[in-house]
Computed example of a mutant assay.
Amino acid sequence: MPEPEIRPPPAGRRRRPFSLRNRGILAATLVLFAALALVGLALYEANYRVAVSSLQARMESYMYLVLAAMDVDASGRLSLAEEDLADPRLNQPGSGMYLQVEGRDQAWQSPSLLGVDLPELSQIEAGQSRFAEPGDSQGFFLYQYGIGWQLEDGSIEPFAVSVLVDAAEIRGQTRAFRQGLWRYLGAAAVILLLAQLAILYLVFRPLNRVSGDVARVESGLAERLEGEYPLELEPLARNVNRLLDTEQANQARIRNALDSLAHSLKTPLAVIQAGLPLHGGSAADSMQNAVHEMQRLIATRLERAGSSARRTLAEPAPVLPQLQRIIASLDKVYSHRLITAEVTIDSELNFYGEER
Rank of each mutant, 00 (worst) to 15 (best):
G275W: 15
V291N: 03
E247M: 08
Q251N: 09
S286G: 13
T246N: 14
L265R: 04
L278P: 00
N250V: 08
N239K: 11
N241P: 01
L276K: 02
L244W: 14
R255G: 02
A257S: 07
P268D: 08
D285Y: 13
V271S: 03
N250G: 03
D285P: 00
Q251I: 06
L269N: 04
G280C: 10
P277N: 05
V291M: 05
L276V: 11
L276T: 04
L278H: 11
R255T: 09
A237N: 01
N239H: 12
S282W: 15
P277L: 03
E232D: 08
A274R: 14
L269I: 15
L258D: 00
P268T: 06
S286P: 00
G275L: 15
L269W: 15
L269Q: 04
E293Y: 11
A249Y: 09
R238Y: 11
A270H: 10
Q288V: 04
Q248P: 00
A283W: 15
Q251A: 12
A252N: 09
P235I: 10
M294P: 00
A270P: 00
A284I: 07
N256T: 09
P235L: 07
D259R: 07
H279S: 04
M287I: 08
R238G: 04
Q273L: 08
Q273P: 00
M294D: 02
L244I: 12
S260I: 10
E293H: 08
G280I: 14
S264H: 13
H279R: 06
L258Y: 01
A249H: 13
L243I: 04
E232S: 04
R253E: 12
V291S: 01
L231D: 07
N239Q: 13
V271I: 12
A237R: 06
L269S: 05
Q251E: 14
N239T: 12
A284F: 11
N256A: 13
A262Y: 15
H279Y: 14
A237S: 04
D285M: 06
L261K: 02
H279G: 01
N256M: 08
E232Y: 15
G280E: 14
A274W: 14
D285W: 12
H292I: 09
A283E: 14
S286V: 11
D259K: 08
E293A: 11
S264G: 08
A262G: 11
G281R: 12
I254T: 10
N239V: 06
D245V: 05
L278I: 13
L236K: 01
Y229R: 03
L233A: 02
I272H: 06
L243R: 05
A262H: 14
N250A: 11
Q251T: 15
V291P: 00
A290M: 11
I272D: 03
V240I: 15
L269H: 10
A283L: 14
L258F: 01
L236E: 03
N241K: 01
I272S: 03
A290L: 14
Q288N: 05
P230C: 07
D259Y: 13
E247H: 07
A257I: 08
L269G: 02
A257N: 09
V291W: 06
Q273C: 00
M294F: 12
H263W: 13
E234N: 03
P230I: 07
A290V: 05
Q251P: 00
E247F: 12
S264E: 15
N256L: 14
N256G: 08
M287R: 06
N250Y: 13
E293C: 00
E228I: 01
E228T: 06
